[in-house]
């Protein structure tokens, strides 16, 4: 049973992302949206306490939320795939349950 995690908070505002990464299993995926997309910045994703590259999870960020916040694709981690809402919907159907961290 694979989990789709959703994160909507900057990792410097609260500990939503840390809570997620400390519990995300290899077959899961993480969608960063709203302020969650700041974690897609390469510099943040690679921080020692976050290390998204070590997770072995699929990583997604909502394109509109990145663009709205002025995040340039070049500054984002290569591990993160940009998606639009139709793909968000599709991912929800592909995973067994949604863990919407709050």
């Amino acid at each position: 049973m694979a989990i789709l995690h959703t994160i909507n908070q900057s990792p410097d505002t609260g500990n939503q992302l840390l809570a997620c990464v400390s519990r995300a299993l290899p077959d899961s995926a993480i969608i960063l949206y709203e302020d969650g997309v700041y974690a897609a910045l390469d510099k943040i994703a690679a921080r020692p306490n976050i290390e998204l590259q070590k997770l072995d999870c699929k990583l997604y960020a909502v394109r509109d939320d990145c663009e709205a916040r002025g995040l340039q694709q070049a500054a984002l981690s290569k591990m993160v795939k940009l998606i639009d809402y139709p793909e968000f919907v599709e991912l929800v159907t592909q995973y067994d349950v949604v863990q919407a961290w709050s």
Binding site: D64, D84, F88, V89
Partner: peptide, 26 residues
């Protein structure tokens, strides 16, 4: 949806998700 629309974009994100889901035939 749990958050106040004046304090969080959640109501709007949920709207986008719902619209995309309906347009995809869900």
């Amino acid at each position: 949806i749990n958050s106040d629309p004046n304090q969080s974009p959640a109501v709007r994100s949920a709207l986008k998700f719902t619209r995309a889901a309906l347009e995809a035939g869900h």
